[in-house]
Amino acid sequence: MELLPAKVALVLVHGIDSGADAWDRMIALVRDDPDIHPWVQIENFVYPTGKLEWRPARTFPDIASVADSLRGRIERSLPAGMPIVFAAHSQGGLIVQRFLVQQLEAGRGVELRRVKSVLMFATPNLGSDYLEFLRRVARKLVDNAQEAELRLATREVVETLSKVTNRMVHAREVTATTVPIRFEAYAGLSDNIVKPHSARAVFGSGGSIPGDHSEIIRPTSRDSDAYQILRQALDPVVTESEKPITELRDPGTGRSGVTIGDTGRPLDIALDIANALARVETLQEFNGRNAFKQHFPPYIRNGLSFALGSTAVSDLGQLVRACIVYEDDGRAQLIEAITSWLEQREPAVQRALELIRRVWPEGLRKGDSHPPA
């Protein structure tokens, strides 16, 4: 039994007048948790923010601009299709919502299937009236586009919240402009900046947990409410990524096969392809297989464990099964590595490519049965 080298991206988004260190305690607990750390890629998104910007040549970007910057960070840092769990604090929750709405309005609902959940801690979904008098005075001196959207019931925030509710929270199908996404909204029991009615707003999932506006995302141990909430969001995704690959034999034919996860449906293409690749002269040697592995992106190769003395079929079976996890993207990576690195004039290489194209057509999903030969 082997574990798949799949990962989950935990994307952290801080609030106004904050920064990357807001998540230090949460990150430390994740990295110290052996059950999830090997599977989690942490992306701590940082953007310009503050209370006041006195320099006339500089300004703080508005929420829409920060949301677009978040899109760029995700596209640059995460492989296509990698599952994502968002954890956002305060204004960070508004940024994540705006990012998701922007993607839906661009017709990218299908791509957002990778977003497994959005956790919002002390997010002012209905605005905040904290220190409103002083904020009004400050507005007369210096404008802050971020603070403007934290006021009570601003048009941009209300419109975004409505789209999130209708197109994501209550969505029943994946289309270009709708996608079901689980949102959880949490209020701090001692938070006097974002009151519970604003933090919880229209979201049915969530609740109130210990802490003030800052403490709510600074858990002191794995038993802290905030960390337990994060674990509960990551666990189902990690479990899916950890689904073991088990070698099976068809009792009728005696043919070996592969079942991914608990689908119970044989997917024997991995073994077929591994056997075909094992006939390639270069891949019959350990050093050749190890060099071949390096032509795959980290999210595929990092979980592989080729060892001296292992068979070619065993090593290449690991590699092919890792590619299968990423479906069409994994198929493309496998074909690219074969065509760019192996000797194309060798008949075994061409037979392997022909087999891949025949038994693993584009669009085949992990739980699908082996297509007819």
Results as ranks from 00 to 15, higher is better:
R73Y: 00
T246I: 15
Q102L: 15
D212I: 06
R31H: 07
R172C: 03
R358F: 00
D329Q: 07
I300E: 01
R167E: 11
P298G: 06
A278S: 15
A332L: 03
Q102Y: 00
P124D: 12
L12V: 06
L316W: 07
P38K: 05
I245V: 15
D143W: 13
P347F: 03
A226K: 03
D32W: 06
R58T: 09
L70C: 04
P34A: 14
W39S: 09
K195I: 10
A348C: 01
I193W: 08
P372A: 11
E242N: 10
I217A: 03
V359S: 05
V40S: 01
S198I: 06
L112G: 11
P79Y: 08
T311V: 07
E159P: 05
G19V: 13
E346A: 11
P298N: 13
A199E: 13
L277F: 14
R155T: 12
F45A: 05
S90P: 02
L78I: 10
D17F: 06
E173C: 02
R55F: 15
I335N: 10
E105L: 11
Q97T: 07
G19S: 15
I74V: 15
D129P: 00
L78F: 05
R365G: 00
A348H: 03
I16V: 02
R155H: 14
L52W: 10
K195W: 11
N192P: 05
E354G: 15
P34M: 13
L78P: 09
T123D: 11
A199W: 13
S241C: 15
R200W: 05
I273E: 01
A9G: 08
K7E: 13
I269M: 05
W341I: 04
P210A: 10
Q318H: 02
V8Y: 03
A337Q: 06
F45D: 03
W54S: 14
V96D: 11
I356W: 04
V66R: 10
A57H: 14
N144G: 08
S90H: 05
V85P: 03
A274Q: 12
M168S: 04
K293Q: 14
L10N: 09
A6G: 08
V179C: 15
F286N: 00
V349H: 09
D32V: 01
S77V: 10
S190Q: 14
V40H: 03
V157N: 10
T178R: 10
